[in-house]
Amino acid sequence: MAKMNLLQAINNALVTTMEADEKVMVFGEDVGHFGGVFRATSNLQEKFGKSRCFNTPLTEQGIIGFANGLASQGSVPVAEIQFSDYIFPAFDQIVNETSKWRYRSGGQFSCGTLTIRTPYGGGIAGGLYHSQSPEAFFAHIPGMKVVIPRNPKQAKGLLIASIRDDNPVLFMEPKKIYRASVGDVPENDYELPLGKADIVATGTDITLLAWGAQVEVLEKAAEMAKKDGISCEIIDLQSILPWDAETIFQSVYKTGRLLINHEAPLTGGFASEIAATVQQECFLYLEAPIARVCGLDTPYPLAHEKEYMPDHLKTYEAIKRTLDY
């Protein structure tokens, strides 16, 4: 074991995969000698050379178009989009090319070896264009996987698994917790399963569900609820495409209540998909309406970031309302 923060764990995962497979290459804006805006790719160019870790022009559509071509020809590209807010110029490439090449060619060629890394979310006073959580857009795309870690150990294991997966993966990193804390991370080569939720804490009264940095928010809210005698089961979804519905069902069968927390706006957020699926499967087990604690239906505010965030206090209040229903 080694102590690492989230950024160090991501860097370690990249080193691990690049050492194990010479076809793995990393590229994006400023990822080379500079190490990327958050330093996630520090020292990779020095270690593996400019042919396997290199800068690209400032063109997200070009980055993903180039990555598609590399993946379809047998390379294992890890493309970085510097902020998830700027992934939208590449949206056409991801939606209409990355996810569909296997289908349009009848399996003759594919982009299955492509991994797209991008930091997402608020909490860093980044304002409108450096704070968004666009994961729900990509959950609507058949042929993709969308993976979001919550801590350093998860980040390394999930990123290694994403790079080695036979499907294109969008790997979204919660930048708010890049350097927030350190955790024990195995130094060896290991993978965590994609599409499998992780039960962080067991409980009997209500199921709390989130992903990424919001899992910590649930833990804080659960500690507050515990003082009121409320037992919370906390689940980290980890992958929102595919998402582990069965683990959520089993938890809701037990608790009879569900609260979903995510940082993206409420309307059209991925919590809506989860809520619809759970009520269809677990309707007769529910003791209260499914609660959603999410971001607001506004552009991400700079001056009012604290008010926008679905924090532990809003979550605690929603837990109480659900239990009192």
Score class of each variant (00 low, 15 high):
Met1Cys: 01
Ala2Lys: 15
Asn5Ala: 12
Gln8Phe: 03
Ile10Ala: 14
Glu19Trp: 02
Glu19Pro: 01
Val24Ile: 15
Met25Thr: 14
Glu29Asp: 07
Asp30Glu: 15
Gly32Lys: 05
His33Trp: 15
His33Ser: 14
Gly35His: 11
Gln45Val: 15
Phe48Lys: 08
Thr56Lys: 01
Pro57Val: 12
Leu58Glu: 13
Asn68Asp: 14
Asn68Trp: 13
Gly69Ile: 03
Ala71Asn: 02
Gln73Lys: 09
Gly74Ser: 03
Pro77Ala: 07
Pro77Asp: 04
Pro77His: 05
Ala79Asn: 06
Gln82Ala: 03
Tyr86Ala: 02
Phe88Asp: 10
Asp92Trp: 02
Ile94Ser: 01
Glu97Arg: 11
Ser99Ile: 06
Lys100Ser: 05
Lys100Trp: 07
Tyr103Phe: 13
Arg104Gln: 13
Arg104Pro: 02
Gly107Trp: 14
Gly107Ile: 08
Gly107Ser: 09
Phe109Ala: 03
Phe109Ser: 02
Ser110Phe: 07
Cys111Gln: 05
Cys111Thr: 05
Cys111Gly: 04
Ile116Glu: 12
Tyr120Ser: 03
Gly121Ala: 10
Gly121Thr: 02
Gln132Glu: 14
Glu135Lys: 01
Phe138Trp: 11
His140Trp: 04
Gly143Pro: 09
Met144Gly: 02
Val147Thr: 12
Ile148Val: 11
Pro149Glu: 03
Pro149Ile: 05
Asn151Arg: 07
Ala155Pro: 02
Lys156Phe: 08
Ile160Asn: 01
Ile160Met: 02
Ile163Asp: 00
Asp166Trp: 06
Leu170Trp: 03
Tyr178Asp: 04
Tyr178Gly: 01
Arg179Leu: 10
Ala180Asn: 11
Ser181Met: 13
Asp189Thr: 00
Leu192Glu: 14
Leu194Ala: 10
Gly195Pro: 07
Gly195Ile: 05
Asp198Gln: 02
Ile199His: 11
Val200Asn: 02
Ala201Glu: 15
Leu208Val: 06
Trp211Val: 04
Ala213Tyr: 15
Gln214Lys: 12
Lys220Met: 11
Ala221Asp: 07
Ala221Tyr: 08
Ala222Pro: 13
Glu223Gln: 10
Lys227Tyr: 08
Asp228Tyr: 04
Ile230Thr: 04
Glu233Pro: 05
Ile234Gln: 14
Ile235Ser: 14
Ile235Trp: 11
Ile235Glu: 15
Leu237Met: 15
Gln238Ala: 12
Asp244Trp: 11
Phe249Met: 02
Ser251Tyr: 01
Ser251Trp: 09
Tyr253Pro: 00
Tyr253Gln: 12
His262Lys: 13
Glu263Met: 13
Leu266Arg: 09
Gly268Trp: 12
Gly268Ala: 13
Phe270Val: 12
Ala271Tyr: 04
Glu273Asn: 06
Glu273His: 10
Ile274Cys: 13
Ile274Arg: 02
Ile274Pro: 04
Ala275Arg: 03
Leu284Tyr: 12
Leu286Phe: 14
Leu286Gly: 11
Ile290Pro: 10
Ala291Gln: 15
Pro299Glu: 09
Ala303Met: 07
His304Thr: 00
Tyr308Gly: 00
Pro310Ile: 10
Pro310Asp: 03
His312Met: 08
Lys314Ser: 03
Thr315Ser: 10
Glu317Gln: 13
Ala318Asp: 12
Leu323Asn: 06
Asp324His: 07
